[in-house]
Nucleic acid binder design. Structure first.
Lengths: 137, 137
DNA sequence: TTGTATGCAAAGCGTTTGCAGTGAT
DNA sequence: ATCACTGCAAACGCTTTGCATACAA
């Protein structure tokens, strides 16, 4: 039977309060605020258990280690900024994509990641370009 | 300057002839047909160089190690079968997705993965009740 | 009391790197 | 003759696991 420990509560809270997918080390850091002695192995074990229970899922972007997020979130996608590398949740969806698959294939699910610049980095890049070229937008 | 060695030729051939993204170990196995003594470190180094040259790119699916494919392929996406876990190329694209991003965000690119059943596994699943004859590969 | 959960340290695994020898130019 | 490339093995970083202890139930 599964037990309610301070550690698991802290880990669960860290995930739900983040608002973005977290790396195991980020979960550790956040949860250690509530449980100082928390070890990384416990984080991995708890995350694994939560994924198996369908309580959490992992999100893996190319070249990055897996991040974790609560499954409770409604269907959504991700945006990674190529400048600051942060990952954002996107609460929009292209909808049904089954028409893209070859005939005979059945599509059950999809995952979409957008790449580009987040608002902050788009502004930073724009002003950098302005300064460099000596022109204004 | 970059040199043309048997090893790199074999690795490049393995990638271009596969028709699907390959794991480093799969590249090694395929390329060893041409260069028996080939080492895994050489594969990693060659793949890294090819990615930096824009000749190849890596594809990472959740819970899987990175796979590699030639960049020469036109823009496409991937389909992973949840039964046989094989990854297929999809030569279709939902098109412009910039409307999905929050305001202020600029979208430069996107990556899409569909999940479901490939043709074979869809058929196998349908007949699984009467015969346990599901074949992979 | 019973047995799961925890923390620590060691082990695993995929990937990277140092080094001396090899081979393309 | 250079000097990038290669193979081997050691090193690395992230993740998992073995084990003795702590603590929910």
């Amino acid at each position: 039977m599964e037990r309610n420990t301070r550690q698991r509560a802290a880990i669960r809270d860290a995930l739900t309060q983040a608002g973005r997918p977290l790396l195991p080390l980020e979960v550790l850091a956040a949860a250690q605020a509530a449980v100082p002695g928390l070890g990384i192995a416990t984080v991995y074990r708890a995350l694994k258990a939560m994924v198996e229970d369908g309580e959490a899922r992992s999100v893996t972007l190319p070249g990055e280690n897996p991040r974790f997020e609560p499954t409770a979130l409604s269907h959504h996608h991700h945006f990674q900024c190529r400048r600051c590398l942060r990952v954002f949740d996107i609460h929009a969806c292209p909808g049904d994509l089954s028409r893209l698959a070859p005939r005979g294939f059945s599509v059950e699910d999809h995952e979409l990641t957008l790449y580009g610049r987040c608002r902050e980095c788009a502004l930073a890049g724009a002003s950098a370009a302005r300064a460099k070229s000596g022109r204004r937008r």
